[in-house]
Design a binder for these strands. Structure first.
Lengths: 264, 264
DNA sequence: TCGCCAACTTAACATGGGTGAATGTTCGCG
DNA sequence: CGCGAACATTCACCCATGTTAAGTTGGCGA
């Protein structure tokens, strides 16, 4: 279960049906590199990635580009843009991409029909912010090897929903050039690092596929610590979001719900 | 009017009174460098900076530190932490700091009394996320001169609430060492850059005070573009947040808790 | 007033990663 | 099957920034 699909877990079965039906009714495809939204646009739709990856990015005057974040299948694309008057960054398809696109009025209707929906989406945004912080750290303080290793770990965990022991594999749709734009490196240097990782048998990376023979080794190279993804906290977190954003008469302060013990 | 105070503008006069009275009733001081929250804590309070600056940061295993963001007077400290089960970063006082600290139950009461409060705070979080993205770009793609110039521009605008023409001044409480931790540079290099900025007469920076004789020159050096701060959008933005997060219909039945199995 | 400590400067040197450009390799597609 | 465009790899060079290690300055408490 990927990070994105966790959202669904926060809905009741009925809500989930409504939500998923709505997604299925509004599918739209984008070709590699085409923009879903451009900096300066007035955003009007809420989007969920169905298959493929999207990239949030910003173009600098000097021609360089920073990829700010990735949106994997099941994840919410742009709640931030949805809320803001003018987009402060762009979103594009990494490769062929399919999204569900939900307009404002339909979104409004959904929020009314599915009271657990807005806290769930809010949870997704909060995790998004935490990921953004981790990227800042990554770029600011880690060297190239650590950065790349960290990215690979994160992508793996976000797709599987858990860190893991031993080995595993997942999709990896970025080119080395895109990895460079994401990590504040150059394509050439990313190539050097990827080769180094290969030689150390820490990863196998080709054909849009990432294989990690030994996750712990890779995590160690990256000093990777998954807590920032707040895996397993979703229900508690959505509850707090609910308290915050959907104030009702008096909801008892939710006591220790037991259950949730974040790993790592 | 600083970024933070804009929140107040979103409240009705009565709400503002309630909110400000609550803040005034819960003041707490921190000495330079002391932690308001530490990574791994279970956060329990919502904090607003009253005077001084706070820094969000994360300590890396190798001993280095990344400052993730700054909280200026009037700004919200940690809505993100408030919502999450375990803090994924720490917060400390940059210098002497005074905050208002509002516990969960009081926060709950305030949200009920002031329906405009949660959308207002939500707005603050959204801006916070936009700032975080800009820092990622800054560190990832700009050279040292641009980074420092950008930081100075941002701090100025966040304190005054508007970009400006001609010259101006504002508080600036960071040491060069802290600037370095914020921008992914070393203290020595920040010093080089600051001197360069001085020689170009782009800034005067001493005694915790920042003077900018010609904002446009500095902004040009930084390629600074204030749109990411979404100044002036607050009311519209809060409206959208309201639509999203304060759906008042019937209350959520919590989904069957079996639906999601917290990883690990 | 003195002295101390944090902050700031300066300097010499080391290096990670950037640049530009050429060459290989792979794969989708006609 | 074969072409062309992406993508990956390699190389030579060098610059922006890091490192280490002294100073110097200035604000503040005793």
């Amino acid at each position: 279960m990927g990070l994105g699909e966790i959202v669904n877990g926060l809905l009741t079965p009925r809500e989930r049906m409504v939500w998923e039906a709505s997604l299925a009714r509004n599918v739209r495809d984008f070709g590699k590199g085409s923009d879903l939204a451009r900096e300066g646009d007035r955003p009007t739709a809420l989007r969920v990635v169905l298959s493929g990856w999207a990239q949030k990015y910003k173009q600098l005057p000097n021609g360089r580009r920073q990829i700010l974040g990735l949106v994997l299948p099941g994840e919410l694309c742009d709640l931030d843009l949805f809320t803001v008057g003018r987009a402060d960054h762009s979103i594009a398809a990494v490769r062929r991409l399919s999204v569900a696109e939900i307009g404002r009025s339909e979104a409004q209707r959904l929020f009314e029909q599915c009271p657990n929906l807005s806290p769930a989406l809010c949870w997704a945004e909060i995790i998004g912010a935490a990921v953004q912080r981790e990227w800042t750290i990554n770029i600011g303080q880690r060297n190239a090897l650590e950065r790349v290793a960290q990215l690979l770990c994160e992508i793996y965990v976000r797709q599987h929903g858990v860190p893991f022991e031993g080995g595993g594999a997942c999709d990896f749709l970025l080119t080395q050039g895109q990895m460079a734009e994401a990590m504040g490196l150059t394509q050439v240097h990313v190539n050097r690092i990827v080769q180094q990782l290969r030689m150390r048998c820490a990863v196998e990376l080709r054909n849009m596929r990432l294989e990690i023979p030994d996750f712990e080794q890779l995590a160690a190279l990256a000093s990777f610590n998954a807590t920032y993804l707040h895996l397993g906290e979703a229900p508690a977190l959505a509850d707090r979001a609910r308290m915050l954003f959907a104030v009702e008469a008096d909801r008892p302060e939710r006591p220790a719900d037991g259950g949730i013990s974040p790993a790592l």
